[in-house]
Design a binder for these strands. Structure first.
Lengths: 337, 337
DNA sequence: GTTAGCACTCTCCCATCGAGAGTGCTAATG
DNA sequence: CATTAGCACTCTCGATGGGAGAGTGCTAAC
């Protein structure tokens, strides 16, 4: 039941509150925007919007603040996304291709660039497959009876583990063994490796195969999370009190955010998921919003998200998260993972 | 020129201030400790200690606070280290051996355990050698003309990089090539690899060797830093103002701390280095202290440190840092790196 | 439906003030 | 000569109390 003018007013309230962090008064609206009506009229509209639950009142004589519902309408219908101009694109892409090392570095850089582009916390998870397969094994002799099992997964990620044997061995022996294992287990998943594990007499070989299975398992379950921008977000006025700030720091840890945010598969490819305030599954996030996207293809996909106070620059953040998702999908595709 | 009693008083002032965070008054001292003299006498001693620069005064009618110099004397001569009882040792070791994965996980767990043991920020750097040597190479075919170069270093760390060739290739071909490379470059350092790089006609092989040299270089220069305990330290009273807290969060980042703390080689093995307040090389650390140790052997060594406000529980922290250094050296030695 | 006018409410800032804590000094004491 | 009691002085801190300002909601007029 939003009349057109009421919708406009709601949009302006949200916009204004997002940029100033100050409860919005009727006067502020008519002063700053060309509404063609008096503050009194706006007050009536505001009262109506409040009745309908789109905005609230911190106290009797303060301006209006959007409610979760207000933000939701804003995000879905009212806001005008802020386009990314060529200049900004260039900057982002430039920073993005700075990563010289492996996937790790690339992801962590990505989080940093995203965070600085939107001035909030950015989270990126490593792309992963639903079922991980082994691609290649190598055994590296360390000394006496210990060696390193180095497993390359089919998405190009490397896992390693130290294994100790019952008797001393040599690199030559291990190389031969690795050859045999590669023939046998190439493109196997953890279950397959485990299944073929019984019929063996050799304990050392079994030990390696067990380690392999575990490595594949571990890889499958691993969802390393990269996070950046905590100190950006803490500068915002919502964290002026030390209690608030401390609370935020305590919650903004990779493992806690991973739990609080939608998983990769809960976000359909190509779409953004916006979770506002109490819509979040974690109670501590009741005053936070998250803009979440997935990237990559069906083959291997990860999640990226921007997390900030509900009073977040949605119009700016949404297109940027989308852009990052595209960018990262492209790169991932080009690398062929 | 510290008389015995003056030294005692200084010790008590530091001790008291560390545990209460409140400027220490003459009355508080005689009330809480059995000094056998009146507050007035203590006041005289305090005045003298202040004259000599061991303590200061926030303002005329406040108690005394230790200066950097005061903490220094305390740390070097006055404090009684708090021993680690069997119970605590068990707890620490128990947590310590939880790490199932590789070195990464172990180091990051180590930082977490250390941080929680001392209630301050803990920093641990990956053990590294002065000159890194290659131990073993493997080439894993990804698709068409791209492959992963997986290099195992002599300290057991794995580095990887994607390489694209001028023409498509196969795993068999790559395996053979890897074999040849292993024969040729086993135990080589970056320089050696580079030196042998000229006399080649094959561009793809050269490309791999270049990547190898770069990987070794990278490994040599890498000093990954693990950090934990930021939110522990932020609970302390010195960070009650949001400005302070924000400043702390901004500085307590891995890369910044790495710069601000002594390097591994600046800390002699088996000894702790304690850096108090303005003794730190970074100006922002003028109200922070660091207790730094190295661990590992000449072969490969890293640094571990606890960082907190100058008002830090030195008596508790020092033995714990020392204990961790020993523990980690042992584990590292056992693994044989 | 819109608007001017106005009473009312609530926050926020600031000034004030007194209590309390602690010092430094002085003079007396063992 | 070290120690101590006494006391004036200083400074912080918390409570108190307006007063200014901002904003609303209501009413009545347009």
């Amino acid at each position: 039941m939003l009349t057109e003018r009421r919708a406009t007013v709601l949009g302006l309230v949200v916009h204004e509150y997002i940029s100033t962090a100050v409860p919005v008064s009727s006067k502020a609206l008519v002063d700053r925007y060309d509404l063609g009506v008096s503050p009194a009229t706006i007050r009536n509209e505001l009262a109506r919007l409040e009745e309908d639950g789109y905005i609230t009142h911190p106290h009797t004589s303060a301006g209006r603040v959007p409610s979760d519902q207000g933000y939701r309408v804003y995000v879905e219908a009212l806001m005008a996304e802020e386009a990314i101009d060529a200049e900004e694109r260039r900057t982002i892409e430039h920073q993005f291709y700075q990563a010289s090392g492996g996937l790790d570095e690339w992801l962590s850089l990505g989080a940093a660039v995203l965070a600085s582009a939107v001035g909030n916390v950015a989270v990126i998870t490593r792309p992963r497959r639903t079922v991980a397969h082994l691609k290649n094994v190598q055994l590296v002799h360390l000394h006496d009876a210990s060696a390193l099992v180095v497993a390359v997964m089919d998405d190009g990620r490397v896992q390693q583990r130290l294994v100790t044997f019952t008797r001393p061995t040599t690199q030559a022996e291990l190389t031969a063994l690795a050859e045999a294992l590669n023939v046998r287990h190439s493109t196997a998943d953890a279950q397959t490796i485990r299944a073929s594990l019984e019929d063996e007499g050799e304990p050392d070989r079994a030990r390696i195969e067990l380690a392999l299975a575990e490595l594949v398992d571990e890889h499958e379950r691993s969802d390393d999370t990269y996070l950046d921008g905590v100190s950006d977000v803490l500068g915002q006025p919502e964290f002026q009190s030390p209690d608030r700030m401390l609370e935020a720091v305590q919650h903004l840890e990779a493992y806690e955010l991973r739990r609080a945010l939608p998983t990769t598969r809960e976000v359909s490819a190509g779409h953004l998921r916006i979770v506002i305030g109490r819509e979040n599954r974690s109670p501590w996030m009741s005053e936070w919003s998250a803009i979440v996207a997935s990237y990559g293809s069906g083959g291997a996909s990860g999640m990226l998200a921007v997390v900030g106070p509900t009073r977040m620059q949605y119009a700016r953040t949404v297109p940027r998260v989308r852009y990052f998702a595209e960018l990262m999908s492209e790169v991932l595709h080009a690398v062929g993972a």
